[in-house]
Simulated scan of single mutants.
Amino acid sequence: MGAYEDKRETCGTICMKYLLFTFNFLFWLAGGGVMAVGVWTLVEKSAYISLLPSKTYAASAYILVLAGAIVMVTGVLGCCATFKEQRRMLRVYFVLLLCIFLLEVLAGVLAYIYYQQLNKELKTSLRDTMMQKYHQSDQEHVTWAVDKLQQEFMCCGSNSSSDWAQSKYILSFNAMSRVVPDSCCKTYTEGCGNRDHPSNIYKVEGGCITKLENFILDHLKIIGAVGVGIACVQVIGMVFTCGLYRSLKADPL
């Protein structure tokens, strides 16, 4: 009877080991994907981050990068702990999984919170940013971000092209009789902002606010879904880890 129980325990341990190893391999790949989403958000879309007064959007992306890096390291540790069958390593692995779980949930919660307040924030901040900071000294990053926004999303002004009439830049000598920045033009050329006509200037209903809001909302959905999705998967990993931990004998002193 005792031999049968030992054999059953051995079979269960082996199955648990391979399940946990498979999970760790997939987990390691998922970590790379999570980190890639965070890095892509920060590198490719950093221009638009500078137009937002709140740092919540950037914080969510940074958390994903950190969590993804830890996931990849943890995946390797999990494989080692699984095949060496060391309970101490499994304890460390479980704690790391729990920390990553909390990080991923935090990224998802931040994305959800910012999702709720984004519209109000953009309405109160984007127009002021364009009017007060565009083409001003020490605000080159804002100027570049606004030009990129208007060209990439084919829009002009915060709510409409008429917003630019009150901007510091357009009212200054540096504008050289422009009525809108050149980045508002459908065909970008030096000085094209002198002619405010629908054939020359983007006349988009809702202006750049609507375009930027939709863009960021889509990315917040991705950040939130990735964070919560990986967190849910980690629950499975923690269950497997507990199962293997209980099936192993205590480490020798």
Rank of each mutant, 00 (worst) to 15 (best):
G2Y: 13
E5D: 11
D6W: 06
K7M: 15
C11N: 15
G12L: 06
T13F: 08
I14T: 15
F21C: 12
T22C: 14
L26Q: 03
L26D: 01
F27N: 01
F27L: 07
F27T: 01
L29D: 05
G31K: 00
G31D: 05
V34D: 00
A36N: 07
A47G: 07
S54K: 11
Y57F: 14
Y62S: 03
Y62R: 02
A69D: 06
I70N: 01
G78K: 04
E85G: 07
M89D: 01
V92G: 13
V92W: 15
V95T: 15
V95M: 15
V95E: 13
L102E: 06
V105R: 01
G108M: 02
V109W: 06
Y114D: 03
Q117T: 15
K123V: 14
Q136W: 07
Q136L: 13
D138I: 09
Q139L: 09
E140W: 09
V146A: 09
L149W: 03
Q151T: 14
C155Q: 00
S160G: 12
I170L: 13
L171K: 14
S172D: 14
A175I: 08
C185M: 06
C185A: 06
T187E: 05
R195A: 09
H197R: 09
V204K: 13
G206N: 08
C208A: 05
N214L: 12
D218T: 12
I223E: 06
G224W: 02
G227Y: 04
V228W: 12
V228P: 01
G229I: 07
C232N: 03
Q234C: 13
M238H: 06
F240K: 00
C242T: 13
Y245I: 04
Y245K: 10
R246N: 14
A250C: 08
